[in-house]
Nucleic acid binder design. Structure first.
Lengths: 129, 129
DNA sequence: TTTCTAATTGCAAACTATTTGCATTTAGAA
DNA sequence: TTCTAAATGCAAATAGTTTGCAATTAGAAA
């Protein structure tokens, strides 16, 4: 958290209350959040501020934008190792995946990959019965 | 095309001009199209009709909805073998991928996967220089 | 072939999610 | 403490998707 605040400061941007709050929410949880989830948890601040804070954090490189298989966009701290998710369509539980295949895809296609989604949705072990 | 028209008829739905046109566009091309691309190619028909036709085809199971890494949703005939795509962010060229890993993900997670996106965006060999 | 009706269409409007302009407020440098 | 560029809150614009409804039409039945 402190390290991330420094990153913001170093970029020339100001440490403001909205930014601190949004960052807090992202730091407190280990699961990716939608803008709306962050907004609802913050209560005080405006949605546009959540939007702009997250956008800034993403540009600064420490928050990642993920396109989930349920078509929702969620955000999480980029500090973890690169990974992907499965989300349960019933209870919303999110599990991380240990694989990715990015470099294999680059080899196969000879593209320079800049963005990818490798996201799954289904029924978790509990909900599938 | 004829086979697909039969599928529509058998489902109890009518063969109409909009449906025929939308199906035509999807049949004519080998690359996934956005609703808007279909709409613009059809000219005569309304966007809502494109929307509802594609939705019907998807429910009947012969058109697939794909969430691309550029956040756009595209549709293509499901007749081909299951596959995924890389799209060039520069020129829009789309290449198909020969891998997927669906069953591996099910094994790893013990989820019953119902939907997934395995889509990439980057620079194609031509555009990357 | 004509008639008839439920299904489908076109249009316009409603949603939902995302993004932006601008007057007011504020972080933090001087 | 003062001052100003940056950031916020609000409200409205934009874009993508979805829906209600009156008018039209496919195709079953006469």
């Amino acid at each position: 958290m402190e390290k991330l605040l420094s990153l913001i400061r170093e970029s020339g941007a100001k440490i403001t209350n909205p930014r601190r709050l949004v960052l807090e929410k992202l730091t407190e949880t280990d699961k990716p959040l939608t803008l709306n989830e962050i907004y609802e948890e913050c209560e005080i601040i405006d949605f546009a501020s959540v939007y702009r804070s997250v956008k800034l954090f993403n540009e600064l490189g420490f928050v990642e934008e993920i396109n989930f298989a349920d078509k929702k966009v969620r955000y999480e701290l980029a500090s973890k190792l690169h990974h992907h998710h499965v989300i349960c369509s019933e209870c919303g539980e999110i599990k991380e995946l240990p694989i990715c295949l990015l470099s294999e895809i680059e080899k196969i296609t000879n593209y320079k990959i800049t963005k990818h989604s490798f996201e799954f949705m289904g029924l978790c072990p509990k909900c599938k019965n």
